[in-house]
Design a protein around this nucleic acid. Structure first.
Lengths: 235, 235
DNA sequence: TTAACTCGATAGTAATACTATCATTATTTT
DNA sequence: AAAATAATGATAGTATTACTATCGAGTTAA
């Protein structure tokens, strides 16, 4: 197993850095598979230990709870998305095309544009869709937030918001639009797959393409292209 | 305790109908208070039993699990919202004003327009914001969905979608927009309160007003008022 | 008044989410 | 190569959770 990408993930999330040992990397990799397979509620350290051929005790030496492990995985994902997005954006100048590209990335409509061996990205995406809100929809959110463990998500939103603000500097809600597009990408794919009555995806197929088309229409309806460069021109 | 409103809630959700006994109504009422106070994860039937001066066994005679109880409460809320919305909408003809009104209702910006003694609506709204996704973001979603326990949510979305389709019959995503506005109303209020960096609510106050202003702008940017009545005129 | 129903009380179970200890095995330092 | 240090495996144990089961007392309805 070769890890190509490593990100600086908040040390509050782990006791021992999982990137620094084979068993640690195995914990992350198999967690993704296991959470994907059985869902976060059914996921336990005991089952994970069995899967990696180790014991609960060992896993507890890396993560003090399954919630922190989930947040760790999600942080990795947000760091990864921002990295990939910034990489591809270098080739694009028009901020509208940039936003388009980011929407393709967050809906995973970028056909294998990003091949990576580390973790199973399709499973990871699926976890982000169905489990990510569980990392912050908890009573202790303010306390955990103070430890900065939601940094990568905020950073990715800020990154999207900057593009949005470039397209339309008059638009008053760049950050809210960014977080809305992100959340909507997830909700709508989940709805399209499991509660299709909450969407207009009649065909019931091609969830990702449906979601992309929808949020694209949403984003570009809200932003007024006539304002592009407005603020800049004033100077 | 006097219950003014009762709705037909899917019988799959309970073993004994809580509306039909004082202790049953007490279970619902105190559940709302307790889930609001300690969050769904910390919420147990044991604690609830203590609160209502009864025992776990009694509560289990009404609900087979805390998940079903949560879904029951959420169903009540969606039935209630649809009822209130339909009531107020009778006075309004313009579908744009109708949508405006619905947005006020879902963000709870309707100042005491709906006084009700049954349950604490502010707490209920708060539960909807932070716990509602937990009722469907579970591995067994397809199985539970087959029992029609998400009917009231779907019905409310359909109701919104109809208004949206009246405003702009050309718009291709009325249901997705409805579910997006609903989810966004919740996400953005949660973010505004707990992760304000994901929003543009600088003041950090007046969360509900902020959210309303934002989703209003969102909704009416997407819908083209020029298409109002278009389809009708063709006939 | 007897049957049906509801509730309270108690007991019990398997699983979960940990914590603790200790011997063994690697790894690093000298 | 030996000694010191650290990581792991194995095992045990605890409080809590999410139930299930049983029994007797009180209440209501025919």
């Amino acid at each position: 197993m070769q890890v190509l990408l490593t990100f600086n993930i908040n040390a509050h999330l782990y006791l021992r850095d999982p990137e620094r040992s084979e068993i640690g990397k195995s914990i992350i990799k198999q967690s993704i598979e296991l959470i994907y397979d059985i869902g976060f509620e059914q996921f336990t350290f005991k089952k994970l230990a069995q899967k990696i051929g180790s014991t609960e005790a060992t896993i507890y030496r890396y993560f003090s709870s399954k919630h922190k492990l989930l947040t760790y995985i999600l942080n990795w994902y947000w760091c990864y998305l921002e990295f990939i997005a910034k990489m591809h954006l270098q080739q694009v100048d028009d901020p509208r095309e940039q936003l388009q590209l980011v929407l393709e990335i967050i809906t995973h409509n970028d056909n294998n544009r990003s091949r990576i061996k580390d973790y199973n990205l399709e499973q990871l995406h699926s976890i982000v869709i169905s489990e990510s809100s569980k990392s912050y929809l908890v009573k202790e959110v303010d306390a955990i937030n103070r430890e900065m463990v939601f940094g990568p998500l905020k950073s990715f939103c800020q990154f999207m918001a900057t593009i949005i603000a470039t397209i339309d500097p008059e638009y008053k809600y760049p950050k809210s639009l960014a977080s809305t597009l992100l959340e909507t990408a997830h909700d709508q794919q989940y709805f399209s797959e499991h509660l299709p009555n909450l969407t207009d995806n009649k065909a019931g197929q091609a969830h990702k393409q449906y979601v992309l088309a929808y949020i694209q229409q949403l984003a570009f309806s809200v932003l007024n292209p006539n304002n592009y460069g407005k603020r800049a021109r004033l100077h």
